[in-house]
Nucleic acid binder design. Sequence first.
DNA 1: ACACTCGGGACCTCCCGTTGTT
DNA 2: AACAACGGGAGGTCCCGAGTGT
Lengths: 211, 211, 211, 211
Amino acid sequence: MVTKQPEQTRHKILEAALWEIYRHGFKGASLDRILEGTGLTKGALYYHFPSKLELGYAVVDEVIRRWIEEHWIEPLNGIDDPIEGLVRCVRRELAEMPDEIACGGCPLNNLTQEMAAVDEGFRLRTEKVLNEWQSGIAQQLRRGQANGTVRPDVDPDATAFYLVGSLQGAAGLAKAARSRKVGYQIGEVFIAMLDGLRPAGARVALAEAHT
Amino acid sequence: MVTKQPEQTRHKILEAALWEIYRHGFKGASLDRILEGTGLTKGALYYHFPSKLELGYAVVDEVIRRWIEEHWIEPLNGIDDPIEGLVRCVRRELAEMPDEIACGGCPLNNLTQEMAAVDEGFRLRTEKVLNEWQSGIAQQLRRGQANGTVRPDVDPDATAFYLVGSLQGAAGLAKAARSRKVGYQIGEVFIAMLDGLRPAGARVALAEAHT
Amino acid sequence: MVTKQPEQTRHKILEAALWEIYRHGFKGASLDRILEGTGLTKGALYYHFPSKLELGYAVVDEVIRRWIEEHWIEPLNGIDDPIEGLVRCVRRELAEMPDEIACGGCPLNNLTQEMAAVDEGFRLRTEKVLNEWQSGIAQQLRRGQANGTVRPDVDPDATAFYLVGSLQGAAGLAKAARSRKVGYQIGEVFIAMLDGLRPAGARVALAEAHT
Amino acid sequence: MVTKQPEQTRHKILEAALWEIYRHGFKGASLDRILEGTGLTKGALYYHFPSKLELGYAVVDEVIRRWIEEHWIEPLNGIDDPIEGLVRCVRRELAEMPDEIACGGCPLNNLTQEMAAVDEGFRLRTEKVLNEWQSGIAQQLRRGQANGTVRPDVDPDATAFYLVGSLQGAAGLAKAARSRKVGYQIGEVFIAMLDGLRPAGARVALAEAHT
DNA sequence: ACACTCGGGACCTCCCGTTGTT
DNA sequence: AACAACGGGAGGTCCCGAGTGT
């Protein structure tokens, strides 16, 4: 047996916890089941996390948060046209997402809806991630307003909230329908709505661009 | 003591179950706690419902479904301008909703996100309600296209999905933020987006219309 | 199977709990072990007692308390000479007590010493039983002072406390020594000390009376 | 960081263990909590003690035993009148004892009552300490009989057992009542009883001597 | 001589569901 | 139609102890 590798052990637990929680929800998640796949036992888990709740918190803080950053915030950085950036993100997610996630909903949204009203710790953490997401988009919208790719009369903050909400809602509907098709449909309308944020002269016939 | 009143008993259980589920989620809901407030016992519950799961199903089918119909489908019937109707619905909900619900999220969305991936029975039932909601809106959009209040190039079905998703997502964000303010902000953007569905000449400065 | 007998079930649990607690202490007591002998299951236990703690409380309130009353308070009632009554009690206990109890200590004392400093609920309940014991003896001492069998300069309350404490302490020593002999030795001294509570002229050579 | 100091480390653990056991009982004592205050970890503990049980044994053998010697055996050595010596001990303890100990019971008695019936190792060790205590007193009583300060018809051994038991019992009652008052009350009676061990002519009105 | 990491189990809690009874 | 009593199990907590490194 190799020597103890605490960092890797912790990571393995977090990863397994993410999937277990994703599949059964936080309350339905079983520590025994989480540990089953890892080959670890309660002792290791209890050493790294003081409770199931804290494990759940860590999943939000460390795993889900990073995922959102990598998928929805950082990709926008290099692009001058923020709307173009968002459209690309949506298209990429719709295309690359495996079926299980496409039909299982956004992990962040799942946890938020299940736990926000039940546990304040979860609410604060998911709220924080959502706020980072929102402010990332709001910042891009401001940059777009500066370089003329976004209408100046748009409220960047409120609109960013709206966009995040719509994405979460769309993921929720796709989950309810257990179908990629609903996601694609909503995606196109979402993109069309995004197009409405451009200055009148700069709008693109996005629907056709896709076909 | 009055004689047994099966229908009323069933109703009392459903009502209590709705609140318990709303507050603790379905998995977190306790049958004992549901019964506590009603003065009934397990016997009554299991006479009317074969299991906790079926009780949850009944809550969706009978309580939540009716609520959606009354609040989001029927109000649109008498109005010629469907977008105007939706705007009124949003404004009414934002205004009349008590704090607990405004910050606790949409009961339908809560249940959907918690259970859709876990239990197929819940998924089918919540999907059905969502579809009724969506097709109600789609039908109105078609009527609007017929009477010229909605742009003809809009896809009624996809757009209706998108709108339902956005509403659910907005409710989810408000829940995560535990704040009415986020709801109001998103509501205004939502209304602005709705305005984008009108033919170019018919758009209204809705923000001002609200003040 | 006979019909449900809640009272008898509750009694069976209490009885089994008393023994389990007596043998392993309260913290060491296992609910599973308690139920093992009764043929009942967790459901029955949880129905009758909301928690292990409340079960322990009930053992003190209902079982131990009654035992003290029957063995140390009521026997004194019919006897005019309270010191004589106490001596008889001591002798009876020393003689009739089975080995397991003689060497296992007084159940009341065991629970008190283990739990009084840890849990206030236990402390209050054991204190109550001890106070009843003490006031039973104090009352007898007062009666003895009235009829001349007890010295008038004795403080009935303080002395009763002292006597109860000595008995508990003696039981504790016998338990530590796991020997009846220590109990007998202390018992004789205790009886001699009791004799010192009589008026000077009324003292008896108790040691000889015993042989 | 200073170099390793094994003896001091061991001592720190023992001291911390004493308090933890005193407050939570042996079973309730947590190794993690013991180590928390010391800044040490499991590694240090298990280097010095092979198990929790052995740690408990060491607490009895080294800490509690020494405490009893210093407080109840050695103080009697320089005094010719053993009864006077015991009275002083009682008075000193009653006066100097901090509240936490006065109301938390005698550490020796606590451990004895909790563990004697459960674990033979504990029983043997606490019995040993109790025997040393008892034989210390018995020896003094014999000396008193030799110099005429103790009645010759007193059985030194049995009486010493009785006295130790009474003290332990008194501490137990004070713990159950969580009150110093009970301790004071019993203390006075105890002293009066001690006075009864003197030869008839040598008795003192101790109650008045105290005021 | 001590720290970090992890194994593995026993425990209470609590819950859903069923049975006998009225 | 409804109740009181009970069956039976799964889950999180927490703990003691044993490894490896240094």
